[in-house]
Design a protein around this nucleic acid. Structure first.
Lengths: 335, 335
DNA sequence: CTGAAAGCGCTAACAA
DNA sequence: TTGTTAGCGCTTTCAG
């Protein structure tokens, strides 16, 4: 059986309350008493029961990050950054997986689950606008993700269209004229999310130069893994052999494009330029070096922590939407 | 304020105890009463307070996985598999990060933290043999990782030496004779962990063919990111331009090797073959396709879940060590 | 089959 | 400065 506070109190010859006061650094405890209690705590190896404290105070010292998948490199890198940032604020971070399902995302912010945490950062992909309005005020929550959602909850997102515009402009500037959008959304597809927003940027870059965006080169993917992208790219080049650049809406898709181009014997960047979006650390090294759009993860993390800590402190604070700055990182794949 | 059980009890005109019985599927409740309670629960949207239950019963329904880093693809893929497997056993998985520090690994299995969880899967890299013996029996725990640790705690690991031997044999068989070990450990370095174990397999493969392992081609790395590997590989080829194959002790290091070889203008696999270890999904696609050793993650996950569930049920069960089967996955980088 | 009492380990509020 | 009382929301035990 684990030790309790009264074991410590008995051993130290004080009351339970005094032990509690010492352990919580509350001021009205004599120095000698404090010493004694701490000595006993150390000797016995007592550790406070956070469950009991939580039941009493409602605070846990822990915040959760809910991501669609653990094994998507983008979320993994985000989680690592958030863990460090929250640690600096005295919050412990745990990560849960929603499997990108609306049900799991809702469950993650349910009162039952929330009681484990002081706040939640939810990287949402399945949540609807309707769901979000019902969430309003229930829980200290910061939304992450590229969905268009009602501005009733704090939300940090990327400048998606702008990033896509910059990437496309980068390709146009180097002379590419038949630029495909891998993972793009066709005109009339549902709006919101990365596909549509980034495709909009691709269109904008063309129009800014007086060019008509080649809509036939919008190549949707069925899943966001690299495997699907490989197939989609192969098919794309079969139909349109004159494609001279691929803007993949994520780095993960870009990897699939690189694989397909290798299969097809098309050289990158000499024959086809490739650029991604996300600036994943792991892919910075992959030959010939993947050009990409950097979404400023450090900035995103900084804002997220600030907003969540603020909301924990003041649940009534007005909801804000913040958009991270983006920039192109040019590497070998667009030389 | 959130609803409590007595709110439900009052609304349903029964006692708190009856609500508890219904919600826990305990048998001695009349069908009509059960119906009524469930109806009220649904109508009010009541959710049980797991914190309070845990204080009373000691069970939380949650298990934790502690990994050194969220952003190492290997752990990310492992976490995703474990989440699914535990979900099938009615356990919710959360993931925490230890930053590969001994202190954090110990904190993660402390009684205080453990009280949040029914059990812990600890992917250990900093824990010492001494630490592990003190852990014995304190908590439902399964260790993961390639350290040599006392067999007093359930431990699932890979067949490291065997995998390395197979990878090296695969290279020898294709004609490579100057095979470097990137991330290897020199003779006399501390034993245990992936570097030494996998380097031992590289030696064994050479000796099995009557060849003396070229110890000068053992290339340690300072960090396990791809960046360090890139530098180490460049340096390696500067000193030993005749190296004709690289066995990287992890896929992540192999990516760095590929980058360096690209920088140096050495073609893979024509001039230099490259093989990794871990079989990361993300890298399966990277051109020319990274050959690797598959550590059977599905098997590892299956064993881990089985052992942890067993230990939760029976804390006194004898500790076991299980070693996952390995096999070479040949792709373009060793063609 | 249902309910009342007690208490898990802690801390807020107040009393000494 | 320290101790006492009460109770967070639930479940165990035992009585009805």
């Amino acid at each position: 059986m684990a030790l309790t506070m009264s074991d410590v109190a008995r051993a130290a010859g004080v009351s339970v309350m005094t032990v509690s006061n010492v352990l919580n650094d509350r001021p009205r405890v004599g120095a000698a008493t404090r010493e004694r209690v701490l000595a006993v705590v150390a000797e016995l190896g007592y550790e406070i029961d956070l469950t009991a404290r939580r039941l009493r105070t409602g605070r846990t010292g822990t915040v959760a990050l809910v991501v669609p998948r653990f094994d998507h490199q983008y979320y993994a890198e985000l989680a690592a950054l958030l863990a460090t940032a929250f640690a600096e604020n005295g919050h412990h971070l745990v990560v849960e997986q929603s499997n990108a399902s609306r049900e799991n995302e809702l469950a993650a912010v349910s009162p039952a689950r929330l009681r484990f945490y002081d706040g939640i950062v939810l990287s949402a992909v399945g949540l609807t606008a309707e769901d979000v309005t019902h969430l309003r005020g229930e829980v200290p929550l910061v939304l992450l993700g590229e969905q268009d959602l009602p501005e009733v909850v704090d939300h940090v997102m990327m400048a998606n269209a702008e990033g896509a515009r910059l990437a496309t402009e980068h390709l146009l500037e180097r002379g590419s004229r038949r630029i495909a959008v891998l993972g793009g959304a066709r005109v009339g597809d549902v709006a919101g999310g990365i596909g549509p927003q980034r495709t909009a940027g691709w269109r904008a870059a063309h129009r800014a130069r007086g060019l008509e965006p080649p809509e036939e080169l919008v190549a949707p993917v069925s899943d966001h893994g690299s495997g699907g992208a490989r197939g989609a790219t192969t098919e794309l080049f079969r139909r349109y052999p004159d494609v001279d650049a691929v803007f993949a809406v994520t780095d993960q898709l870009a990897v699939g494009a690189l694989a397909a181009l290798h299969d097809l014997g098309r050289r990158v960047p000499e024959e086809v330029r490739v650029i991604g979006f996300d600036n994943l650390d792991l892919l910075a090294q992959v030959p010939p070096g993947l050009s990409t759009v950097d979404p400023s993860n450090a900035w995103i993390v900084e804002q997220t922590v600030e907003l969540l800590e603020r909301r924990i402190a003041d649940p009534a604070a007005p909801a804000v939407l913040r958009e991270s700055p983006v920039r192109v990182v040019a590497r070998g794949s667009t030389d």
